[in-house]
Design a protein around this nucleic acid. Structure first.
Lengths: 201, 201, 201, 201
DNA sequence: AATGAATGAGGGTTCATTCAT
DNA sequence: TATGAATGAACCCTCATTCAT
C-alpha cells in the first residue's frame, strides 16, 4: 500500500507482478488507443490480467487510477529535459530528445493530448500543466539566452518569443496523427526550429 | 409542452425553425465545454429544447450528430483561408485571421482539439483532417513562396519547412487551455512567426 | 409525470397499467417479505413486469422509490382513524379497525416495522413518524377524555397514560410474526385494552 | 499492525484476548447503529481492530457472526426475568428491570427490534423468539396469578389477557425511536400497566 | 414532425468470501 | 493465529436507441 518504488528497487527484477504498476500501464495504453472516452475499468483490469475487483483494491475509484496515469505520463515527459552540459548542448539535447520521443513513443503523446483536453475540466490536472508549462518555458528561454550570450544562437532573437513558438510547435507536433507519425514533417519542423534559433547544424 | 398547435399556427409561414442546425449548435457547445467524454444526447436535446426522440428523428444515431458537428467545425475553420489579394496580403491576412480566431472563438478550438484526438479512431475524420492539412500546407507554402519571390519574405527560408513549423505552432496554440486563452502567448507566437518569415511589420 | 390521481379518477377502471403505482406496490411487497435489507431494484422491476431502466424512468433513485412506499404505507395507516360519530363510536371504531388491520394486512405491518427501524437513520422518515405519533396520541387521548365525560369509560383513568399504553401495545402487536398473526393473542390484547378503558362490550 | 510479537509475548499468560467476543460486540454495536441493512463485515473487523480475514477465521460466514450476536442479545434480555422473592416482588422487579433497561440500554432494544423484523425470514431466530415469548408469557401470567391469589393484584383480571397486553406494550416500547428514548412515555406506559394490574404503588 | 414511455447493454463500485503465506 | 491480496457475483444507475401514438 505504501511506496512500492523502494520495494521494486530492492527486489531488482520483477520479484512479483507489481499489480499497481501493471494497472497503470494498462490504463495508459487504453487511454492512448481509445481515449478517455473509451476508458473502461473492466478493460483495464482484463488487460492487466486481474479481476475488476482487484483494480478497485489498488485504486478505489476510476479517478484514482487516472491520477496514477497522469503521474506516470508527466514523469516520462519530464525526463526529456537534460540538466548537464553547456547551454548549446542542453538546448540541442532537449530538442533532439523531444524529436526522438515524438517519433518513438506515440502512445505518450496520445495520452498527453488526452490530458491536455481534460485539463479544463480537471482543476488538479490544470494546475499540473500550468506549472509544468511555466517551468518548460523558463527553462527553454534561459537556454536560448545562454546560447545567444555564447554566440551559439541568433542574437536577433527575442528569447521569450522564440521559446513560446518552439513550445507551441512541439505541442502541435505531438498531437496524435493517423497511420503513425509523419517523420518527414517532424524533421522539417525541428530543422526549421533549429535554423530559426541559428543553432549550428 | 403546451400550446404547440398555436406555435405551429404562428410559425406556419416561417421557413421552419431549423431543428437540425439547433441540434448541431447545441452539440457543438456541449463538446466544447464537456468534451466527447461528456457528450450526452439527452443534454443536447434538452439544450435545443426538444425531446430526445426528436433528436433521433433528425440524427438517427449519436454518430450522425457528431458528423454534423464535424462539418460545422471544419466549415468555420476553412473560412480563415483568404483567397484574394497579393501573396503578402493573403499570408498576413491568414495569420491574423487565425490569431484573432484563437483569441475570440475558444469554443471552436476546443472542438477542433477534441476532433484531432478523435481522428485516430475515426477513419472518416482522419481522412478529412488529412486532406484539410495537406491543403493548408500547400496553400501556406505557396503563399510563402510568392512572398519570397516578391521580396516580401526572408529568401533564406525553406518554404516547406516554414509552413510545417507554422502549422505545428498554430495547432499547438489551438489546444484548449485552462482559464481562457493566454493572449500574451498567442501574440508572442504569431509575432515570432512573422519575424521568422521576415514579413514587414 | 404530474399528479396521476386525477388521471386515474377521470379514466375510472385502470385505463392503462399505471407503472408508478405498480412499482410502488411491488416495492411494498418486497419490503414486506424481504425487508429493506433484501430490497433489490431489479426484483421490484421484475415483479412489476418492467425493465430495470423503466423503474429508473419513474423513480430516479432507489431512495425515491422508497419515499413512494413510505407515502403509500402512511396513507393506508391514516385511514384507520375515523372522524365521525360519538366519542365511544370513534374509539371503538378505531380499535376495531386496527384489530382487523393487524389480522388482515400483515404486509402493512411488516413494512411499518421496517420503517420504524429505518427512522433513526432517515431524518425525513423520523419527522413523519414523529408527527404521526403525536397526532395519534392526541387523537386517542381526546377520544378517551370524551368517553370518560359521557360516562362511557372508566373515570379513574389518566387519559394520557392510557393512550400511551394503548399505542405501545398496538405497536408491539404490529410487529411481524412468523407463520402468520396469532389471532388469539391479538384478540386478547384488544379485549384487555377495552376492559382497561372500561368500555361497554 | 506492527509489533504483534511483543504483544503476544506480553499477553502470553493472559487468557487470550477473546477476539470472538470483541467481534460479536462490534457487530452488536454496528447493528444497533446501522441496522442489518448497514452491517458490513469489514466495518465489524475494523471496529474490532482485526483484519477482515481474521473475522472469517472466527466466524466462517456473516451468518455465523449474526448467530453470535443473537445469542448475545438474547442472553442479555433473559437476565431481566427475576427468579426469587414473592410474586409481587418478582412481578414488580421484572417490570422495573424492563423499564430501566429500555431507558438505559437503547442499543439492546435497537438490536432486538432488528431481530424481531428478521425473524420471519430466519427460521432459527423465529424458533428462538417463539420459545422465548411463550416462556415470557407463561412466567408473567403465573406471576399475575400469584399476585391475584395473595391479594396483591386486581382480582377482576384475566391473567392471560393482562400478560398479553403487557408483553405487547413492552414490545411496542422497545422499538427504537429517534433522538433517544422518550422517558416520559416509557414511565407513562409502565405506570398505567401497574395501575391496570392493581399493584400497590 | 414530435413525444412519452420503455428497454438492452453495459459502467463503476461494493461485498462476503477465499487462499497463500 | 493472522493477514494482504484477490475474486465472483451482484447492485444501483446511465445512456443511446426504439416504438406506439
Amino acid at each position: 500500500m505504501a511506496d512500492q518504488q523502494d520495494d521494486a528497487a530492492l527486489a531488482a527484477e520483477q520479484p512479483r507482478p507489481d499489480r499497481r504498476q501493471a494497472l497503470v500501464a494498462a490504463a495508459f495504453q487504453r487511454i492512448a488507443s481509445e481515449g478517455f472516452e473509451g476508458l473502461r475499468t473492466r478493460d483495464v483490469a482484463a488487460d492487466a490480467g486481474v479481476n475488476i475487483a482487484t483494480l478497485h483494491y489498488y485504486f478505489p475509484t476510476k479517478e484514482a487510477l487516472i491520477r496514477g496515469v497522469i503521474g506516470h505520463a508527466m514523469q516520462r515527459f519530464a525526463a526529456t529535459i537534460p540538466s548537464q552540459g553547456s547551454g548549446l548542448e542542453q538546448l540541442q539535447g532537449h530538442l533532439r530528445a523531444l524529436s526522438r520521443l515524438i517519433k518513438d513513443d506515440q502512445q505518450l503523446w496520445a495520452v498527453m493530448g488526452e490530458l491536455v483536453l481534460r485539463a479544463p475540466r480537471d482543476p488538479d490536472l490544470a494546475q499540473t500543466f500550468h506549472q509544468s508549462d511555466a517551468f518548460w518555458h523558463r527553462t527553454l528561454r534561459d537556454l536560448i539566452v545562454r546560447c545567444i550570450m555564447t554566440g551559439a544562437a541568433n542574437d536577433q532573437l527575442d528569447a521569450d518569443d522564440a521559446a513560446a513558438l518552439a513550445i507551441a510547435a512541439i505541442r502541435g507536433l505531438s498531437l496524435p496523427t493517423v497511420g503513425g507519425v509523419d517523420v518527414g514533417r517532424v524533421n522539417r519542423v525541428f530543422r526549421q526550429l533549429e535554423r530559426m534559433l541559428g543553432l549550428p547544424e
